[in-house]
């Protein structure tokens, strides 16, 4: 995608003087997007450019921490950034975002109830949703025939699953589900609570084959593991290769994430950024993004425009009675405790 854009720009430069079209595009100005790698649908951008005449440039990052550091350093010139929900309050607190006043945006009513006025951004003062997903676990239902929607299946696996359990490798993701199973808050600073979490995971450890976040799909499909912590999109792809691989929705809830669009301080094209936000709030447009990335979005009515293989997939939409528990960015004390649990578990 970037290559095509660069090529286009080069063409633009060489013929700029005589091409009317490129002159027109310049007149509408620019939009600089700073997004996660491989996370901006080229079709979406092409349509936006064609419709508005605004010329879009994209730069990419690989973690919320990188985004934070870049914005703190200042002088980025970005107009759109895409922080995860845990980092939105931090960016706001550090005074790095411009208000967008969500409810006044054209198309605000299209946002699903779930993502209107969210915990991490009251009143959508700074953000609108981009893509979201859940984390749970995938079970091979050929081997396990009971009710898979219970954290007991993962943490106290029955005999047929013992020794065939796959866990995430990152402390944050792996421990989050144990916390939900025990009703412990994600950012607990209480050592007694976190000791319960450690005990649960220690008891599970003899039955775990791997703590690894790479190759989850391969291990599930090959049968090396029969139950594995997993991301929803990944679980869907595993099921495409083996129909018996089902994604669990335990009633206690599942970890969830949502990346949002925001306008950073220092944006020189604020008007264009708002135009982009309103463009994205139209269901037919955000559907292009979902089709590209394979994640759900927070806009009502976009299903009608989504690729057939994404519609009605159980992995992409949680049952209404299963709470989505959005991850937070924890205090240093809580992070310390979490690391202690992890290091002790894997010592």
């Amino acid at each position: 995608m970037m290559k095509i854009r660069t090529a286009k720009r080069l063409l633009g430069y060489s013929f700029g003087a005589i091409t009317v079209a490129s002159g027109a595009a310049q007149a509408e100005g620019d939009l600089f997007i700073y997004n996660w790698t491989d996370y901006t649908a080229p079709e979406l951008i092409e349509k936006f450019e064609a419709e508005t005449g605004i010329s879009v440039s994209i730069d990419t990052y690989d973690s919320n921490e990188t985004l934070l550091a870049k914005l703190q350093a200042g002088g980025t010139g970005y107009d759109i950034v895409v922080p995860g929900q845990g980092f939105v309050p931090i960016l706001v607190e550090e005074n790095l975002l411009l208000p967008i006043n969500g409810p006044e945006l054209l198309g605000y009513e299209n946002i699903t109830e779930q993502f209107k006025d969210p915990e991490w951004d009251p009143g959508n003062a700074y953000t609108i949703p981009w893509q979201w997903g859940t984390t749970s676990f995938t079970v091979n239902t050929d081997v396990f025939e009971g009710d898979l929607n219970s954290y007991d299946v993962l943490f106290q696996p029955p005999e047929e699953l013992q020794g065939k359990v796959g866990m995430f490798r990152s402390a944050e993701e792996a421990i989050f589900q144990a916390q939900i199973a025990l009703g412990v808050p994600q950012c607990s600073e209480d050592p007694a609570e976190m000791t319960k979490v450690l005990d649960l995971m220690k008891a599970q450890k003899p039955y775990v084959l791997t703590y690894s976040s790479t190759g989850i799909l391969e291990r599930l499909v090959s049968g090396d593991v029969l139950i594995s912590q997993n991301w929803n999109g990944y679980s869907m792809r595993s099921r495409m290769e083996n129909p018996s691989l089902e994604y669990a929705y335990p009633p206690e809830g599942v970890p969830a994430w949502v990346d949002s669009l925001a306008v950073p301080k220092g944006s020189e094209n604020y008007e264009n950024a708002i135009t982009f936000l309103e463009f994205v709030l139209r269901p037919e447009n955000i559907a292009l993004q979902s089709n590209f990335a394979g994640y759900a979005n927070g806009v009502t009515g976009s299903e009608g425009y989504m690729a057939e293989d994404l519609i009605g997939q159980p992995e992409l939409s949680a049952p209404a009675d299963v709470p989505l528990i959005f991850g937070k960015t924890c205090s240093p004390e809580a992070v310390d405790l979490r690391n202690l649990v992890w290091t002790t578990l894997l010592e």
Binding site: E65, S170, A171, P332, V335, D336, W342, T343
Partner: peptide, 21 residues
């Protein structure tokens, strides 16, 4: 190894990433 036991390398890497220490 399946990551069931940490090694020094992973321990260091963890502190600079999610460990934030």
């Amino acid at each position: 190894g399946g990551g069931k036991h940490l090694m020094l390398g992973s321990l260091v890497q963890m502190q600079f990433a999610a460990g934030r220490n």
